[in-house]
């Protein structure tokens, strides 16, 4: 199963949602797989922060569906967030873990999931996220997207994807700071709120 194909399937289901996503090649893949979601997606470059940030966003905007596009390396970096989700039970958070069993962006050395013994979905269930599943085919993944985007409990799908990257895709040129402004302005416009307002005159 290719991550890019999964992204296109998920992208086709999205309209008003907000997305926070992880680092490496998945950033450029999502940029290309979901062009209509570019302003609605916060492209981050960090391990262990993506799902916690998505949960914080979900807590702040409880009426809005939030999607975390995390990775096996990123989730293993901070497994504690699964226990926090298990206790907090956010009604509007759908977590996808792209599990390619490797640290792809640095050339592909294996993550802990490559051993076949470490099961992130089982860890999530043990942490109190009852709806946590592993998808191995595009059809399974798409069905979990449908369920996860409609769920009123936290929903985790671990997508077992190949360690390859979609060839010949357009690279995103913006950095984390520009990405934040684009995302914040999108949230402001769609929510009718001010997050980063004008300076005081004093």
């Amino acid at each position: 199963m290719k991550r890019f194909d999964c992204m296109k399937a998920l992208s086709a289901r999205l309209k008003d949602e907000l997305v926070i996503l992880s680092l490496g090649a998945s950033v450029d893949e999502w940029y290309n797989a979901a062009p209509h979601m570019r302003a609605a997606s916060l492209f981050q470059q960090q391990l262990g922060c993506v799902t916690p940030q998505a949960f914080g966003l979900a807590a702040g905007l409880p009426h809005r569906r939030i999607i975390s596009l995390d990775t096996d390396g990123g989730m293993m970096f901070n497994l504690g967030i699964l226990a926090t989700l298990g206790n907090e039970q956010p009604k509007n958070l759908f977590v996808v873990v792209w599990d390619n069993e490797c640290y792809q962006s640095i050339g592909g050395p294996p993550t802990h999931t490559a051993s076949g013994r470490v099961d992130i979905a089982a860890i999530a269930r043990g942490a109190g996220v009852d709806n946590a599943f592993t998808a191995r085919t595009l059809e399974e993944f798409d069905a979990h997207c449908a369920a996860g985007l409609a769920a009123d409990v936290p929903y985790v799908v671990v997508a077992k994807v190949a360690g390859t990257v979609q060839p010949d895709i357009k690279r995103k040129h913006s950095d984390g700071r520009e990405d934040k402004y684009i995302f914040v302005r999108h949230v402001e416009a769609t929510e009718g709120i001010v997050i980063m307002g004008p300076s005081e005159h004093n």
Binding site: I20, L42, G48, C49, P52, Q53, A54, F55, G56, L57, A58, A59, G60, L61, N78, G80, I81, T84, K180, F183, V184, V187, E188, E191, I193, V194, I195
Partner: peptide
């Protein structure tokens, strides 16, 4: 852990 808390706070900031 507090690092998780920092990241959650960052997400809350993005919500306004």
């Amino acid at each position: 852990n507090e690092g998780e808390g920092a990241a959650i706070c960052g997400g809350v900031f993005l919500s306004g």
